[in-house]
Structures are given as structure tokens and as C-alpha cells.
Design a binder for these strands. Structure first.
Lengths: 254, 254
DNA sequence: CGTTCCCTTGACACCGATCAACTCTGGTGG
DNA sequence: CCACCAGAGTTGATCGGTGTCAAGGGAACG
């Protein structure tokens, strides 16, 4: 039980260097947990959350709906991702978060979260860095959806998910779970399910990926990246550079 | 000279309550300044910034280019906006920032910025809040570009700019400067300049806006909002709710 | 006074949407 | 064990919004 937050620690640890006590603090934040079934909401637009939610395991989608009922997914939340630091600062959710699989979430009381920067200043940077990376992903989505055709758009999304999942160890030799229906993928890319289907078939036909029963196998990663011009630098996978206060451990690896 | 950062103070102040000494701190941050001509870069992709840039006056655009040369603007930076808190934390810019007009920017050394949360914890929340609002705007753009046709998409962008400029006092009776060519608007919305032109004419034809020589007049705001289902709550224009540590001044106005 | 940038307009092509039917799979209950 | 059903994937035909290409006009600027 004490290591169910492994993905969360892996994610933050991959992105910043965490000291031993910092890791313990993060673990302590995750004690309150809940299992949420697929197709249920973790939080909905309009609510005023009292907790910060952290995805310990499973997939979720952040989305907005418009008056006419159409849905746009604006982010996929993977194991280790923080759903809404918003909660501590913004009062009203401007979107909803839906579980795509059964999800284990940690509920961190906002007050507890508020104390983190005070009690553990080094974690402030780690959290801030995670937030800024989320922002970079949002920018990449705008560029991807705005300036790429369906085929490279899909390829880029797959490359991104691959890179992010790999970071937390959820990729096994180019293979990972992709618990999203074609409709979900469509809502993430601003397309229709029918067209995602056709794009997917094209990728299959070219021998780039195999996708069946929510299991995706990348067959030719270089060609897939080439197709969409994928460059993972926006994910800032390298560790944190240190040119300021805080942050003690200087051992950079990888 | 000492009040050139008025828009910056207005922006942060509109979004959080700032104490007198906090305001002074912000003012101190902005002492190093520079004028940048239109069409020049404030910072480019790949650079490792040593400063955080704040737009004191003028417009800029944050954008990404792809291999094929196409450009996607992912944000408009208006007077008072912070360009890149990234600088303190992420080392490499994953996008560029271009001045759309002559811009006055403040250069805040990263070390100085790093000290802010330590020396003025109340400002930490204000900065964090500004960052989270930027994130909310990015999400709104994904939804706007992904799920709206050209006409409502353009209307929504105009409504957003209207709301954000109003916040810092740059709207005069529905009228404001919009120093973006149709090509720039197109690159922000994932369209072509030709199609933006036609959408614009449609808006004009319906008597909703007048746009000429980079000056925009909204003629019928309710109808414009109705057209795109604009709901400004994602901008979180209300002041900060306080349910944690820090933050002393409790007088809420508005 | 020419040049450049931006806006405008028309003709046409094409990508992706839409609509509709059918298949396949897994699950559920009789 | 079978019948049924719902959700997801697949396919084809057609429509339409937006892109593309090309030409021309107008205003600012040196």
C-alpha cells in the first residue's frame, strides 16, 4: 500500500531531483485515496474543489463541453499526473475530468497542499516545473491540432503519449495501453471518430503501429516521428537546471 | 518612469489582492527595461533565458513553427502579461516570442525572481494564479480551435481579447487596438488568412464588429458572445479566494 | 513615386464531416 | 448454451467548410 504512489514519485522524480525527505513528504500527501470507476467523473465543471487530485494509476481526460454539446478533450491525465493544482488557487473548475479507466486518485486537502512550499521549498520548484511542463504540452496540442493534417496529428499524439508513459515506466518495448476509444481520440484532436478510424488504418497500412483492444504497439518509431516531425524537447524530460535558491542535490544523471 | 509598469500592476492586482509592499516589490522587479521594435523577437526557441520578461506595454505573440514552416501562435501576450516564468525553471525555450508592436519589456533576472517566493510569500500565490489563468486560456484555445467553425472561432477570440484588455483598462467603450494582421489571426486560430478575411467580413456584415487599421470596435457585444457561446469564467476574473496560508489583506472589492 | 505590406475577391480542389448501414466483440440474462 | 444487446470499430457515399492559387487594390512609407 505504501508504494501505490510509485508513478507519482517517478513522474516528479523524473523531472526534478527529489531528496529523501521530499519523497517522504510527497508520499504523505497521498494517503487519502479513492478508486473511481471508468466513465465516472473525478471532478466537474463548476465545482469548487477542496482537494488537489493526483492520478496514482489509470487514465483520465480533462475536457470542456460547449453549448451545442460537442466535447473537446484538452489533456490526457496519465499515472503520476496532478489533476488540478488549480484547486488551491482558483475557486471554480472551468472544465471536467473524466476517468477513462478505473482510476486510483489521491485526494490532497488544499490546506495541506498550501503548506508544501512553506515546509519544503525544494518541492515548490518540482511542482512548479510540473505545472510548466503541463503548459508546454497544452501549447504543443494547440500547434498539433491547429497546423497538422489528421494523419500526422494522430502520429504526434501517439508519440507524445509514448514519451510520457515511458517516463513513468509504462512502455514495454514500444507497447503500451491506450484506453481511449476512437471517439475519445477524435475529441482530443478536434476530429470525428470516423476520420480517426481512417487515419488509424492508414498508420496500420504503413506498418507504423498496431492498435487493438486498447493496446498499442509502435512498430516503427523513427518513421512515426518522421511523419509528424516529433521533437520531444517540449516535454523537458531532462532534469531541472539549478541557478537559484533551494535545491541541494547536484547529481544529474541521464 | 516609475509608473510604466502600471499595466503589470493592474493585471496582477486585478487577479489577486496586492498589499502596498507587494506592489513595491513588483515595481522593483521591473526596473530593467528595454524597448523592442515590432517584428523583432523577444526570445527565440532554443535559447536559455537568463531573465523573466514582462510585457509592460504593447503586444507580442508566442508561437511555434513546424518543419514545413507553418506557424501556430499559441498565445497573445498583452500589456501586463508575464512572458516566461519558464525561465526560472525550464532551461530551454520550446517556442519563440515575437513583438507584434513596439513593446516595452521588463527584464527580471532569474535569481531575483527566484527570491520572490521566499521574501514575499504572498506574491507566490499571485504569480501562481497568473500562471494557472494562462493555462486556462490555453485550454480555451484548444477547445475553441478544435470544436468551433471559423466564424464563432473568430468571435470567441475577439471576446477573449476584449475581456483581457478590459481587465487592464485598455478597452474604451467596446473599442480597442488589435495590432494583428489577418495572417496573425489566422495563425492563432489554425486557419488561413484568406478565410479569416471572409469570416471577418461576415462579422462586419452582421453588424457585430468594425475592424480597420488594427482598430477594433465591438458593435454588438451580446450578439457576439451569443454567436460563440462566450463565457468568461475561464478567465477567473474574480479575486483570489483565500483558504490557506499567506495572504494578509482581507478586503475584497468588486 | 515606387515599393511593400496588407486586404480583398473569385475559382476551384480537397480534407474531413456527415449520415447511414453493417460487423464484431463482450457481456448479460434467459 | 443460446439469444439478445450495447458499445466500439469499419466502410461507403455524399456534402460542405476551408485551403489553395492567383490576381488586383489600397494605404503607408521611404
Amino acid at each position: 500500500m505504501s508504494d501505490d504512489c510509485a508513478y507519482f514519485l517517478a513522474k516528479l522524480g523524473a523531472v526534478s531531483n527529489l531528496s529523501e525527505p521530499a519523497t517522504d513528504t510527497l508520499r504523505d500527501l497521498c494517503v487519502r485515496r479513492k478508486l473511481i470507476d471508468a466513465k465516472r467523473h473525478i471532478i466537474r465543471e463548476g465545482e469548487r474543489p477542496a482537494h488537489v487530485h493526483i492520478i496514482l494509476d489509470g487514465w483520465a481526460a480533462r475536457y470542456k463541453v460547449q453549448k451545442d454539446g460537442s466535447r473537446q478533450i484538452v489533456a490526457f491525465l496519465l499515472p503520476g499526473d496532478i489533476c488540478d493544482l488549480h484547486a488551491t488557487i482558483l475557486t471554480r473548475m472551468d472544465h471536467s475530468i473524466l476517468a477513462l479507466t478505473r482510476v486510483q486518485v489521491a485526494f490532497v486537502p488544499a490546506e495541506l497542499m498550501d503548506e508544501v512550499p512553506v515546509s519544503r521549498p525544494e518541492l515548490l520548484k518540482a511542482l512548479w516545473r510540473a505545472t510548466l511542463i503541463d503548459e508546454a504540452v497544452l501549447r504543443a496540442w494547440i500547434a498539433n491540432n491547429g497546423r497538422r493534417r489528421a494523419l500526422p496529428r494522430l502520429a504526434h499524439l501517439i508519440c507524445e503519449l509514448h514519451a510520457r508513459l515511458k517516463l513513468v515506466g509504462l512502455v514495454d518495448d514500444g507497447h503500451f495501453r491506450l484506453p481511449a476509444t476512437q471517439e475519445v481520440l477524435a475529441d482530443a484532436m478536434g476530429l470525428t471518430a470516423v476520420h480517426v478510424n481512417r487515419a488509424l488504418q492508414e498508420l496500420r497500412g504503413r506498418g507504423l503501429v498496431a492498435l487493438d483492444l486498447r493496446e498499442l504497439q509502435i512498430l516503427n518509431l523513427p518513421a512515426l516521428k518522421e511523419l509528424c516531425g516529433f521533437d520531444d524537447s517540449y516535454l523537458h524530460l531532462g532534469k531541472m537546471a539549478d541557478h537559484g535558491v533551494g535545491q541541494a542535490a547536484p547529481e544529474l544523471l541521464n
